[in-house]
Nucleic acid binder design. Structure first.
Length: 296
DNA sequence: ACCCAGGGTGACG
DNA sequence: CGTCACCATGGG
């Protein structure tokens, strides 16, 4: 990895096949929007987002990345967000060398698991329950317009993800009006707990077991949503969210399409190792890319 | 009309 | 401990 800061733009090169499009659209984060890219400048894709209140534009440059704007001292934030210091070549070798998982690699290679803001992840994945990615994105966009701070960026208006107190102050009806449905009370209740001072960050240092126990006490957070939050925002690389896609994929890849017992599934996940959560994202991408279960 | 989507809750055995 | 009806919403 080589980094260079020039004209308020951060260039990060030599990223072992990093793929921005796959990472931004794979369903781990819901706020990245594709935008125009400059192919004359070598860009092959570009997206905008607001990260912890900062509006940014990221573009794919070869197997590298540009991020704008980035001021001096902010490099670490972005390197951490995109998880660029992790050995993904090593993780992809683990997948390639595993008979059960290697089928996932050709399509999913290049995915990175982003390190998102924990509160945004908490609310976003409460919304994700029994929902689809397109609609989840829409609800979150409307939530940001409703309660987030407006930010001017390159001539378009963007919105920060709302502060905990701002969501806590919303009414159930306001959330239902943006499409949150029956999850509205859960969203408000969880936002209130954070606004009242609960520190999600402390879960970063706990064991997976203890961190799960804490998060499961939030209304609207069950086993799957819990593991999404821990994996996507709190550094628990072995948190392994099992949704309908992963359930079908694991059944096919590990159990020859014979439904396993819960304990057998648990054992299979453990066998993947300490990066099982990151590898889960490759499995998820595979399952969705072939629409596993839809036509067989 | 029915089924599905990055499921969770609460009730009941 | 496990199962299961129910929960809003929009798209296929």
């Amino acid at each position: 990895m080589r980094t260079e800061l020039k004209d308020n733009t951060l260039y990060i090169r030599d990223l072992n096949g990093f793929n921005l499009k796959k990472s931004a659209e794979c369903g781990q984060a819901f706020r990245w929007k594709a935008c125009d890219f400059n192919d004359a400048a070598g860009e092959t894709a570009a997206y905008t987002c607001v990260l912890s209140g900062r509006p940014i534009r990221a573009a794919q440059l070869g197997d590298g990345l540009s991020v704008h704007p980035c001021k001096e001292g902010e490099e670490r934030f972005f390197i951490n967000y995109f998880d660029l210091e992790r050995d993904y070549a090593g993780i992809e070798k683990l997948i390639a060398d595993d008979r059960r998982l290697s089928v996932c690699l050709p399509g999913a290679s290049g995915i990175r698991v982003f390190n998102q803001d924990p509160f945004e992840a908490l609310i976003s994945f409460i919304i994700s329950a029994n929902n689809n990615i397109k609609r989840i994105s829409g609800i979150i966009d409307r939530l940001c317009m409703l309660a987030g701070q407006e930010i001017e960026f390159c001539g378009s208006r963007m919105f920060a993800f709302p502060e905990p107190a701002s969501i806590a102050a919303l009414s159930v009806k306001q959330l239902q009006d943006i499409g949150a449905g029956y999850r509205a009370p859960y969203i408000i209740d969880s936002a209130k707990r954070i606004a009242d001072g609960y520190e999600l960050e402390k879960l970063r240092g706990l064991s997976l077991y203890e961190a799960r126990k804490e998060l499961l006490a939030f209304k609207g957070v069950g086993p799957k949503v819990c593991d999404c939050i821990l994996l996507f925002s709190l550094g628990h690389t072995d948190a392994f969210p099992i949704d309908v896609w992963i359930d079908r994929a694991m059944k096919e890849l590990f159990f020859d399409s014979i439904p396993p017992k819960r304990s057998e599934m648990q054992e299979a996940v453990l066998s993947i190792g300490k990066y099982s959560g990151i590898i889960q994202q490759y499995i998820f991408y595979y399952a969705r890319s072939i629409q596993l279960g839809k036509n067989n």
